[in-house]
Amino acid sequence: METVLAFAIGGLYALGLYLMMRRSIVKLIIGLAILANAANLLIFTSAGLTRGRTPMIGAQETAVRGPVADPLPQALVLTAIVIGFAVLAFTAVLLKRAYQTVGADDLDEMKATDT
């Protein structure tokens, strides 16, 4: 399963980066979204996939028994999803304003500030 996901994540990174290098700002934002999710999936997978074993400590015990899912990466992914969502919302508004101001959805039209 990890192997399959590894290839999927690699594909997502490639797709995200490819879309970001296109001229259209719509593709840029889709690329950013895919890239953020690829990173989340990477964290989730790299910590190891454990199925059906919650990290709960029994009533009479002081430590978890046996191999259990590591909750920390899931907490990290949760935080990253929230941050990613907020950032994506901001980017969408920014790109919409840029589209309205410049009058084009083409990044090649937005080179006035380049050096």
């Binding site: 700002i25 840029l28 920014l94 840029a98 101001t101 410049v102 990044l107 937005m110």
Partner: peptide, 12 residues
């Protein structure tokens, strides 16, 4: 306009 164009590069 310049701000928005600069911001797109900065943000991305």
């Amino acid at each position: 306009r310049a701000q928005l164009e600069g911001a797109i590069k900065y943000v991305t």
